[in-house]
Nucleic acid binder design. Structure first.
Length: 426
RNA sequence: GCGGUUGUAGUGUAACGGUAGCAUACCAGCUUGUGGCGCUGUUGGCGUGGGUUCGACUCCCACCUUCCGCUCCA
């Protein structure tokens, strides 16, 4: 009979113990910033009604067209593994009547997201994101707070050469005008654009601007720019955003070609990446304003703004620059036991140590003292406490200093006190 | 979805159309109450399925997987 062989599904990965420190470090850093800016945590389910994403992210986006993991329940509902966070949070905002809370409502989240794509650098089918949403306020300072919150976290993680790219894609008043002008331009230049661009010119013209093809970029450098078409209110909004950014001295640039692949954005859009000598990392975080989404999903006329960051990508960036993360502390104390009676008494003693908040390792499963001391040594323990048959009978216990190889015998009831003394001396 | 790339013990790596080595880790010993080393030994592998062949880890095909690029995004 052959052994069954299971493999992790495409694009998924195990987060092994040695990588957990990175995830913890990022979460911890993010939490500090979130707490300072008064964000509250929210968790939403990993599965949602597929239509929630189709409505919000957009029917014609790649995410919806080909990247959703969907399934049908026994009740015939179509559910999808969440491909992003904003839609669920807006749903929760509406469903729980958050509009009756003091506005704006500031929320943060952290968790796994899923997109059915071909895996490649910084891209997986299950990936981790943290993000924020600020709902119920349309002041441009909120946009800048979203940017700043993400920037601060990346900065605090030690990432260098961060660059914020900002753009405005207008609103329902002015975007159609821009779109029209762009389509006209694309049609005129269609012979000097690649096939992909021509296809996208029809389905989602704004995204032609993203094309990586050099020849297309050359042509597109003369394309109309969205900022030139903004209506007065959008223009002012952008102007204020940039003014706040100037005050902050955050490195940023206005990138007229920055458009995002989700349909719900209005006005401000942004991405944060690292950029050194013209080499760009690709987005580590991104977001923008979405003033129409709450209404689109059945809520009130609530403006909002948000951002999300890719944890896996941040980790690659951290590893590239050799960012320091602290590894979990190894126990300084090791417990060794000899003989059946001592072994029986060992668990209660360990419990006493745990209650006294003393971290201690053990070598149960290895019964020879030699092996246990070997393990203690390899772990780097400074002190080993030894309970043998003799000590167990006399209610005594040995404390061995691993550096000096000296050991003393103390009463079992004094073990906590004695250990604390020894640790103090270290 | 398209293009390229990858697949040999847990990990890292060899070789060959004819019985798969090496290193490291793990486990067990080195006489049973005292140290990381050392020595000895054991366990464990050709991604899957077909085809060619007397014989395939090796050649061919398909699929799966890995990584990279396109698409797109975090």
């Amino acid at each position: 009979m052959s052994k069954p062989k299971f493999q992790i599904p495409t694009g998924m990965h195990d987060i092994l113990p040695q990588d957990q420190v990175y995830y913890e470090k990022i979460l911890e850093t993010a939490k500090k910033v979130f707490s300072f800016y008064d964000f509250d945590k929210i968790d939403t389910p990993i599965l949602e009604d597929a239509n929630l994403f189709i409505r919000s992210v957009g029917q014609n986006t790649d995410i919806v067209e080909k990247e959703m993991f969907s399934l049908k329940t026994k009740g015939k509902d179509i559910l999808s593994l969440r491909p992003e966070g904003t839609a669920s949070i807006v749903r929760a905002y509406i469903e729980h009547g958050f509009s009756s809370l003091p506005q704006p409502v500031r929320l943060w989240y952290y968790g796994p997201f899923f997109r059915y794509e071909r895996p490649q650098a910084g891209r997986f089918r299950q990936f981790w994101q943290f993000g924020i949403e600020i709902l119920g306020e349309n002041d441009p300072i909120i946009d800048v707070q979203s940017i700043l919150t993400m920037y601060a976290i990346l900065h605090d993680l030690g990432l260098k050469n961060l660059m914020v790219r900002v753009n405005s894609i207008g609103d329902d008043n002015c975007r159609p005008l821009y779109r029209k002008a762009l389509v006209k331009f694309l049609r005129e230049k269609s012979s000097s654009l690649c096939g992909d661009c021509n296809r996208r010119a029809k389905t989602n013209p704004l995204r032609v601007l993203d094309c990586k093809n050099e020849k297309c970029q050359e042509t597109l450098s003369q394309a109309p720019q969205s900022v030139d078409f903004l209506c007065d209110s959008c223009k002012n909004h952008l102007k204020e955003v940039l003014e706040y950014l100037d005050e902050l001295k955050v490195p940023y640039c206005l990138d007229s070609k920055l458009v995002r692949g989700l349909d719900y954005y209005t006005k401000t859009v942004f991405e944060i990446e690292t950029e050194k000598d013209g080499v760009r990392s690709g987005a580590l975080a991104g977001g923008g304003r979405y003033d129409n989404l709450v209404k689109m999903l059945g809520g009130g006329d609530i403006p909002a703004c948000g951002a999300a960051a890719g944890v896996d990508r941040i980790i690659s960036a951290m590893k590239e620059i050799g960012a320091k993360v602290s590894f979990p502390s190894v126990p300084e104390i090791f417990f060794a036991q000899i003989g059946p009676l001592a072994k029986k008494k060992s668990l209660p003693i360990l419990e006493d140590l745990r209650r006294a908040n003393i971290k201690v390792g053990e070598g149960f499963g290895k019964d020879s003292l030699k092996e246990q001391l070997g393990k203690a040594s390899r772990l780097g323990a400074k002190v080993v406490i030894i309970l043998g048959q003799r000590e167990a009978l006399n209610n005594m216990i040995l404390i061995r200093n691993m550096q000096t190889a000296k050991q003393v015998e103390v009463k079992q009831e004094d073990i906590i006190k004695e250990i604390k003394n020894v640790l103090k001396e270290q």
